[in-house]
Design a protein around this nucleic acid. Sequence first.
DNA 1: GCCGTTTTCGGCCCGACTGTTTTCAGTCG
Length: 589
Amino acid sequence: MKSFTNVEIARLLRNIAGGYTIKNESKYRFQILAYQKAADSIESSSKEVKDLIAENKLNAIPGVGESIKKHLLELFEKGEVEHFNEILKEISPAIFPLLDVPSFGPKKAFKLVSAFGLKDPEKVIDQIYDLAQQNKIASLESFGEKSQNDIITAIDEYRIGKTKSSRMVLPLAQEIGENMLSYLKKEKSVSEAYTLGSLRRKKSTIGDVDIAVFSNNPKRVIDHFADYPYKDRIIEKGDITSSIILSGNKQIDLMVLNPNQAGSLLQHFTGSKEHNVKLREFALKKGYSLSEKGIKLKDGTLKKFDKEKDFYNFLGLDWIPPEIRENNGEIEAALSHTLPELIDEKDIKGDFHIHSDYPLDSSHDYGKNSMQEMIDKAVALGYEYIGFSEHNPSIGNHNEEEVYEILKQRNNKIEQLKKSNKNIRIINLLEVDILTSGKLALSDRCLDLLDMAIVSIHSSFKTYGVKMTKRILSGLSHKKAKIFAHPTGRLINQRNGYDANWEEIFKFIKENNKALEINSWPTRLDLRDDLVFQAREMGCKFTINTDSHALSHMDNMKFGVSVAKRGWCTKKDIVNAMSYNDLIHWIKS
DNA sequence: GCCGTTTTCGGCCCGACTGTTTTCAGTCG
């Protein structure tokens, strides 16, 4: 039995699609689509194919049917697939590394590899680069001077891009987008401008920043855009779209249309791709053809929409919130008028994960502000309650008695604050480590000093799956442990989350009336949106917390709310959308 | 090769841009 990661499998399936494209694109048109769809689907799946095979649930992945399923089983059994070998038999393996280079597709890669008889996948990119520099590509049929130079540029960029993580965290993408919007609005003909794409859908990481502008003079807007002073390079510049690269390799894509087509452009450019494809297939069955321009009716006339809501309504659908446009059933729900009423920032009544500067001699980090300062900020945010949850005192530096004394002192402090702050309720928490043994870092009588505990993993992240699951469940089994903080431990662009059996953990959380944290810190956003979706379906509750270590961090709540929205959460799924009285009831449950 | 509230057969999203073709192929989102 061999094993492959989802990323490896997706790559293999894309290579098969590439192989079919080279063999005969028109003949295998739909096989190519099917393999690409299966590859996308497997790559973005929250479950590993390896596990799905073990559970005999491979069909659960959309786009994987009987045939591809059979091939994948063969792959895991033998390490290779006869059918795949047959397809790739006469195709040089040197093709495939080139597909990672921007502007290279199967056809172009095949032409070049064939023309020069290249065979070595390890060397092929360097070889093509050298051939371009030696002016040997321009003379090939369907190539020329310009495309030869473009190959050099593309490989240069590929080499830079390879050494760094290319996706941005949300706040950075938002800043880049906002800066561009204010620049664009300086052009007189711009009536409105919006950031769209994954930024509007509030994905945790953003590839390119997509922007739509409504103007009666697209050409002027495109020229203005391409003149952006902070650009590194113009990738393309047409009549209504243009793309530029900023320093740091950040790409911005622009599309400009008349204001009377705003509705369809907003819809189109917000995506996701999967949502749009599904929506267009749905419309096609009704005899409509959708595009950014509008809706083409059966008689060929184009109906234009200036409001996005009208665009959806015309198709018989309710307007769909951008955060859930991922083809996860939202189109079906919009059709049957059963879309969820998603949680909103204004529904949030408190924040449980706040680190003040209160000195309790922890081995982890402190906050920068006093409890009183953070209370004042919570009041300013309109919260009904706030929970303090500093890290537990270091158990390496203190014995149990000393820890107990430190916490008693802290309780006195919190009691004082309750008396002097009648306009907000204060919840007494701590963030308590789940040790490698599965025990909590505090004794029972220490934990009894608290209203409840947030528990989390802060050590030995590499613990293997089954052991990690046991460790987590053991930590969560204490009656005071109500919230499981930053559950996967991931740090975006820095560290993958640890491996655990999430289904088992979610089941435990649900059955024992506990909550999963959605951590709003922009490089955490943990629990991830896809796991939030899964956990909510299983009936879990969540708390959206900021994990603030300073006053300004308390404004990050919106990022966590976005994750909850992307997981289809409504008010009733979120513990800190409860009133204080309901909250107390939940804490004691 | 996948898939189903018109279907287990007969469909399968849509358009922009570039470079090389003088009418389109390839790539991208």
